[in-house]
């Protein structure tokens, strides 16, 4: 770590804000998934056809993936000592989270806009 701590403080704050936002978002997601997860594909599509559902799910994905990436980042920083491996792991973490978020968001948009 260099002497510049501003990004560490920002990381700390962002983790708190995403945590707070995730309290209602996760409860909503659980409530929704309990009704939908056992169903078939048309049921999932019907669920996401409502713009409010698709919108809140998109918001959950944004905040959830951010929170997840931030948590995994913290674990990598704490347990990997080799600087090179750490750099690689941090980059891979970001890339994987970004890719999965993109794929999930594309799926939600596609389901919301289909037919």
């Amino acid at each position: 770590m260099s002497g510049d701590n501003s990004h560490a403080a920002k990381h700390w704050l962002v983790t708190r804000f995403t945590s707070l936002a995730l309290i209602p978002l996760c409860l909503w997601l659980f409530y929704s998934l309990a009704g939908v997860a056992g169903g078939d594909q048309p049921l999932v599509q019907l669920w996401l056809k409502a713009p409010a559902h698709a919108g809140v799910l998109g918001l959950f994905l944004l905040v959830g993936f951010h929170h997840s990436a931030s948590g995994v980042q913290e674990v990598i920083e704490d347990y990997i000592s080799s600087e090179n491996v750490k750099k690689l792991a941090l980059a891979a973490n970001r890339l994987l989270h970004l890719a999965a978020f993109g794929a999930a968001l594309a799926a939600v948009l596609s389901l919301a806009l289909k037919g």
């Binding site: 594909q41 997840s68 995994v72 674990v75 999965a100 799926a107 596609s110 389901l111």
Partner: peptide
């Protein structure tokens, strides 16, 4: 708290894959 956090990160990727399957691959779904 840390270990459940890591498990939930994995779960989030599974959720993403499930959504992706629902939208683009009926077979996978």
């Amino acid at each position: 708290h840390r270990m459940t956090g890591m498990a939930l990160s994995v779960g989030l990727f599974v959720l993403a894959a499930w959504l992706y399957a629902a939208a683009f691959s009926p077979k996978c779904f």
